[in-house]
Every structure is written in C-alpha cells, then in structure tokens.
Design a protein around this nucleic acid. Structure first.
Lengths: 336, 336
DNA sequence: CTTCGGCGATGAAACGTTTCAAGAGGTGGC
DNA sequence: GCCACCTCTTGAAACGTTTCATCGCCGAAG
C-alpha cells in the first residue's frame, strides 16, 4: 500500500480512503490511485485490516459429513442467507471426527470468524460453550442446544415415530433399526421415537443394528449382519438412521437375494435427492433441509449483528414421511 | 495477551514464547503463564500473528458443485493430504457461479491462504493467472491448465470415447449426449471423445441435448426433451456428462414408461457411489476421485513449501468404464 | 480585505502479535 | 575474585492496515 501511495504521489491515508470511503476522495486522485493499484497488482492484506478493527466478513459451517447430500443441501440454504448478507461461507468437514471438529473450532476462533454454524460430532465439546461465552456466535444445526446457543432442529423423535408407525401400519411387528453410533443425538432420538411408536402400536422390541458411521458402506455391512440374524428372529422391516445407510442396506439385501419391500421393507431418513432414484425408490422421512440451513444462518447473522438485541431461540421443524416403493403396499394389502 | 502477561507477571515476549517456543521458557514460568491463559480464556489473534509474518496455515478448495458427490470425494482426498501436512482445508462452493468463484478468489487472496485448489467454473478468469503470478500457488483440479499452474486431470476425451465405444459395441447407432453448458471444459472434452468414437465406429452424428447445469433436476428435464424427440429420430442410448444427469434422466424415462436398458441405454460419468445404487444400476465412467484430490493437494503443498524448487506439472489420469445394468446385455445379445 | 466553511488530503496512532538483540542473574573454571 | 558462558527474560521494532484529528486551500459571504 505504501508503494501504491508513492506511485500515486499521495499519502497512505488517501489510498485507504480510496479503498474504503471513495466518496471522500476527489475524482482525480481516486483515478490516479486506482491506476497505481492496478499497475502494481496490489491486494489488500486482510489480516492487517482485520487487526485494525474490521470484522472478518466470514462465517463457517462445520459440517458432520460433507459427503452426505443432506448436509450439502443444508449448506446451500445457509449460503443463500450469508450471500444475501454479503458474508462469505467456508465449509469445514469434520467427517464425524471429534479431533478434526476441535481443530476447526480452535482455528475458526483464532481467525475471529463472525460466527459458526455447526452440526457437531460432539455437542459436549467445551469449546462450543466457550466459543459462545467469548463472543463468537454459535448456532447448532440439526442438534439441540443449551441456553448458550441458538439451535435449529427437526423433531427427530417425531421422525422416528412416523417411520415406525408407518411400518406398524403396514403390518410389520418385528422392526430393525440400523444406525449409530448411539452417542449421536439424532440417532438416539430417532430410536426413541421408533420405540415410542412400537410401544404404542404393539410391535416387538426394536432390533438395533448399531453402525459405526452413517454412510453407504456401513449400510452394506449392516445388510450382511441383517441376513446373519437367525431366520426366526429376522425383522421384516428396517428403519435406517439416514438414507445413506438405507441405500447401502437396500443394495446389499437385493444383492443377497432378498426382495424389497416383499421380504424386507425399508425406511430411510432425510429424503435426499438420491432416495427417489434408488433401485427401489426409498420411503424416507423428509426434513426441510434448505430451510434448516437458511434459518440457522439467519439466526447466526442476527446474533452477529447485534449481540445486544438478540435472544437465543430454539427452532423446531416437523419432519414428514414420504412414502415410496421400498415399503410398498404389499403388506398393507395383506393386512387389509 | 497483555492481560495474560500482566496476570502472570511476565512480559509480552515471554507469553509469546510460551505459545511458540515453549522450550525456551522455564518450566515454572511456563506453568504460570499457561494458567493465566486458561483463567482468562485467551485466544490468540490469528490476524496479528499472520501480519507479523507467520503464514495462514490454511488452504482452500473452490469446488464446482458441493452437492455433487464426485467433488466431495475429491475434497476428501485433498483433506487427507492437508491433514498430513498440518494445514486446514476450507471448502468454498462456487455452485457453478462465476461471480461467486470470483468473490471467493478475491477473498482467499486477501486472506493470504497458502494455496488454492480449484475446479473452476471459469478457467479463463484472469484472477487465476494473477493469483499465481503474485505468489499464491494455484492447482487446477479436474481441469487442464496453462504453464502458470499445476493441474491434475482425468482424460475426458478418453472417457467420452470409452462411453461411446461401449454403446457402439452394444449395437447402438443413434446416441444422445446429455450435458452442458458446453463452455465447461469437461463437457466439451467428453463430447469430443464421444464424437471421435462415433466417427471411428460408424454411428450417426451425436444428438446433443444441452443442459444448463449438471444436476439431477436437469437430468429429469432432459428426460422430457428426450421423449419429445420424434420417434424416428429418437436415440436408443444416452451418454450423460455426469452421474447426476444420468440419474435424473433415468428416473424420468422410467417414470414416462420407457425401459432401461431395453428402450434406452444410459451411461453416466464419475461413478459416484450412488450410481451403483440406482433404480437400474448405472454404467459409468469411473475416475480416481480421492487420488485426484490427494495428488492435487500434494502438488499444491509442494509449491507452497518451496516456490523455488518447484516446477509445474500436469498430471493426467486415465478413466475406466464400469459396466452395469443400465446398458445391459440386451442389445449385445441381439447383435451377437 | 477578512473570515468562515467545506472539501481533500495528511500523518500519526493504534490494532495484537512475533522476533531479536540485549540484559539479568547464576554457575563453573581458572 | 574475575571472567566466560549459559539460561531465562525483557523491551522495542516491525508487520500493513484504518481511523481520526488536523491542516491547507479555495470560494463565498460579510
């Protein structure tokens, strides 16, 4: 910037004014400075600017699994909101890894981002509360929060209930749950919801096939374990914690010779775009993904704008069941 | 930091040493300073640190479409490399939008990231060359580059050739290409490859159904247009620029009553995980996705480490055809 | 002719670190 | 008892901006 000033024959302050308050600078000087900038290829050093007091104009979304289309849809919603506010959104993929989540949170705080959206692997990480306490707004996405954050969630207990109720209505009595680890709140809630429905509807206790992650590969593995269950105790339906698991499970079961939905009915969760395109189109519990992201980002921006006039909110959306071929009408017909 | 120093009864320099060169500080003082840090919840200001000379320890991948699993797999590969090097990776989603790409590039340069990986919407953006000229390493991913960058690509002409050759081998003579816009290099190359194969194999000229984007929704739309073609000129096979289009197309054609592969054979591109799980498992041209990302990040890190001993490289991988049901054996049998 | 106001431009302080030359204090050798 | 050396700590400079009080100048008003 010094060089620019020298070349244009003005002071540092004037160059800065051209950049930040062009209306204060005369047309003539502004042009001279601008051409010096262009000639020298000057690029403002954001660190220095930020140091002096400007904010970072940056927000981050720490995502649980970037490879899951559910989260990229949420991110798209968030980006719509940050774009409108003129902030940049960085995506950070924790990849279901606590340490990576921790590393990102530390980094983001050091970089003084304006706020953090996060779908946490580990909502108990003290970093989250600390971050908020020290003044970086944090909004939990798809996960409930304590009094120190805003949160935007979808009712996972209800979602689990919807899924299980649907299967019970179709006449299924022995239902499997595929998903895990249970330490993940969403998983635990969906199980709770399913158990609630079963208790009410009079099915047998849920057979839980716990997985280590929530991806397609784990779904396939669960398929093998499913088939390994003694035929007498084998469930006639599976409710999966997300669509990736459901797609993997579906693929593996079909591969091993079972028919869906005749032999096994499957319900997924999230209703990602691929669910409808699956080998057997997937019944799934739909969440308002974009809306989730947009709302979360709006809450974040509100808090970042005026920490004063902001009160934490916990917004809860309702999921909806989308019925497709993977649960079929077969049993229903049988029952009816 | 001043507060920390005061509370611990030491100088600023000592606090800094505790943070950056703990081996220079006596055990006693170190503990005192550390407890002051904890008590005050001090978080180092990364801007100031960077200003004084430290690098940003940060790399970004500007991705073409975060919702396409192809790119998240590439990103996972890149992250493996940056993790190993102790750098953080930020994902920036340009979402096929030139302006957003431009905004991200400006921002990243201002933030002085150590390097930029990018699958550009617009490889002609002068920002890219300028960035490199001014000293920020740039590596093009899945897109060829001039002499000013490294690049890591997969041979798209060959990929197009493989796909079309496969269809020709199955006896198809009238082939559609679904994808666009043509301004995207990958799309143009895949068309070129397909045309080369057709010229060699003696099919009719490619029917190009140009799309605006490369996603599922556009694939569905292409399905309608496909069916709108006069029956006499309607192709018997479609080669899609990526799997998202192929999945959308497949879904729509089936929905409209066509059988795949009997009425229309479909070949996709990328071989994303969902391709195998589709209604009719998709024949697709596979790319070494993770490898692509890892290699690109490694080149970037090499350049960032020593701009001196670095020479730009252009690495080209070969794609492979993965045959599944969507091209079936049907025609082959007919022909044979 | 003086004074006032307003517009543009200026220069220095401030932001929060890191680095580095130099100082303080202690230990051991001669 | 002096010097050399070592370890630990210090203080100040430097990084590249933005901001703000101030100044110079010009035209208009009195």
């Amino acid at each position: 910037m010094k060089d620019v000033a020298a070349r244009a024959g003005v002071s540092l302050g004037t160059v800065s004014n051209v950049l930040n308050h062009p209306e204060l600078v005369s047309e003539r000087t502004r042009r001279r400075v601008q051409s010096a900038i262009d000639a020298l290829g000057f690029v403002r050093n954001e660190s220095a600017r930020q140091l002096r007091g400007g904010g970072s104009r940056t927000v981050a979304y720490v995502v649980f699994d970037a490879a899951n289309p559910f989260f990229t849809d949420v991110a798209a919603g968030a980006q719509a909101a940050t774009d409108a506010a003129g902030l940049a959104l960085f995506l950070c993929n924790s990849g279901e890894d606590r340490e990576r989540q921790a590393a990102y949170l530390d980094l983001l705080e050091q970089q003084r981002v304006e706020g953090v959206l996060i779908t946490p692997v580990d909502p108990a990480d003290p970093r989250l509360a600390a971050l908020a306490r020290r003044g970086t707004p944090v909004v939990l996405v798809d996960r409930g929060a304590g009094p120190e954050h805003c949160s935007v969630t979808v009712d996972d207990v209800l979602g689990g209930d919807l899924a299980a109720t649907h299967l019970l209505d179709l006449g299924h009595r022995r239902i499997a749950f595929v998903g895990g680890p249970r330490s993940i709140g969403q998983v635990a809630d969906r199980i709770t919801g399913a158990e609630r429905a079963i208790a009410r509807g009079g099915g047998e206790p849920l057979t839980v096939l716990e997985t280590e992650k929530l991806n397609i590969a784990e779904g396939r593995r669960a398929g093998e374990r499913f088939l390994g269950l003694p035929a007498a105790r084998r469930p006639t339906a599976a409710f999966c914690a997300n669509d990736l698991l459901a797609l993997g499970l579906l693929q593996q079961l079909v591969h091993l010779g079972l028919r869906v939905p005749q032999d096994v009915a499957i319900v997924g969760y999230d209703d990602i775009e691929f669910a409808a395109a699956a080998a057997v189109p997937l019944t799934s519990v739909a969440q308002p993904r974009q809306r989730l992201g947009r709302t979360a980002a709006e809450l974040l921006l509100d808090e970042a704008r005026g920490p004063a006039g902001h009160t934490h909110q916990h917004i809860l959306f309702a999921p909806e069941l989308v019925v497709r071929a993977s649960t079929g009408l077969h049993r229903a017909a049988t029952v009816a």
